[in-house]
Computed example of a mutant assay.
Amino acid sequence: MKSLWLSQAGLDTLDNTVALCPNCHRKMHSLNLEEDIIKLRDKVKNYNYK
């Protein structure tokens, strides 16, 4: 399932949250590059929560 960013009427939940530095956050919103979105989703998907 593809989630929506909060700025795009997405849910304001922890499951829909990623911590980014200010520069990366700005880049994600300004450029909205598909390869950045895929890279971020892969990192989150493969993160080992312990």
Score class of each variant (00 low, 15 high):
residue 1 M to A: 12
residue 1 M to N: 10
residue 1 M to G: 09
residue 1 M to E: 14
residue 1 M to W: 06
residue 2 K to Y: 12
residue 2 K to P: 06
residue 2 K to R: 15
residue 2 K to Q: 15
residue 2 K to I: 14
residue 3 S to G: 11
residue 3 S to Y: 13
residue 3 S to L: 09
residue 4 L to F: 09
residue 4 L to Q: 04
residue 4 L to T: 00
residue 5 W to M: 13
residue 5 W to S: 13
residue 6 L to F: 02
residue 6 L to P: 00
residue 6 L to A: 04
residue 7 S to D: 04
residue 8 Q to Y: 09
residue 8 Q to L: 09
residue 8 Q to G: 01
residue 8 Q to V: 04
residue 9 A to Y: 03
residue 9 A to W: 04
residue 10 G to W: 08
residue 11 L to D: 13
residue 12 D to L: 13
residue 12 D to Y: 13
residue 12 D to H: 14
residue 12 D to G: 07
residue 12 D to W: 11
residue 13 T to C: 05
residue 13 T to H: 04
residue 13 T to D: 07
residue 14 L to V: 02
residue 15 D to L: 03
residue 15 D to C: 00
residue 16 N to I: 01
residue 16 N to V: 01
residue 18 V to Q: 06
residue 18 V to F: 03
residue 18 V to T: 08
residue 19 A to F: 13
residue 19 A to P: 01
residue 19 A to C: 07
residue 19 A to I: 11
residue 20 L to D: 02
residue 20 L to P: 01
residue 21 C to K: 05
residue 21 C to I: 07
residue 21 C to P: 00
residue 21 C to S: 11
residue 21 C to W: 06
residue 21 C to D: 08
residue 22 P to T: 07
residue 23 N to W: 03
residue 23 N to I: 03
residue 23 N to L: 06
residue 24 C to E: 09
residue 24 C to T: 11
residue 24 C to G: 14
residue 24 C to A: 14
residue 25 H to W: 02
residue 25 H to P: 00
residue 25 H to S: 01
residue 26 R to K: 14
residue 27 K to R: 15
residue 27 K to T: 05
residue 27 K to C: 02
residue 27 K to M: 09
residue 28 M to W: 01
residue 28 M to F: 11
residue 28 M to N: 01
residue 29 H to T: 12
residue 29 H to K: 15
residue 29 H to Y: 10
residue 29 H to G: 09
residue 30 S to T: 15
residue 31 L to D: 15
residue 31 L to C: 09
residue 32 N to P: 00
residue 33 L to A: 13
residue 34 E to Q: 14
residue 34 E to H: 06
residue 34 E to R: 12
residue 35 E to T: 08
residue 35 E to V: 10
residue 35 E to W: 06
residue 35 E to Q: 12
residue 35 E to F: 09
residue 35 E to Y: 13
residue 36 D to Q: 06
residue 36 D to A: 00
residue 37 I to Q: 10
residue 38 I to E: 08
residue 38 I to A: 10
residue 38 I to N: 05
residue 39 K to A: 12
residue 39 K to S: 12
residue 39 K to Y: 07
residue 40 L to I: 10
residue 41 R to N: 11
residue 41 R to W: 04
residue 42 D to W: 10
residue 42 D to V: 11
residue 43 K to Q: 04
residue 44 V to K: 15
residue 44 V to F: 08
residue 44 V to A: 14
residue 44 V to D: 02
residue 44 V to G: 04
residue 44 V to I: 15
residue 45 K to N: 10
residue 45 K to W: 06
residue 46 N to A: 13
residue 46 N to V: 02
residue 47 Y to T: 13
residue 47 Y to A: 14
residue 49 Y to E: 05
residue 49 Y to F: 15
residue 50 K to V: 08
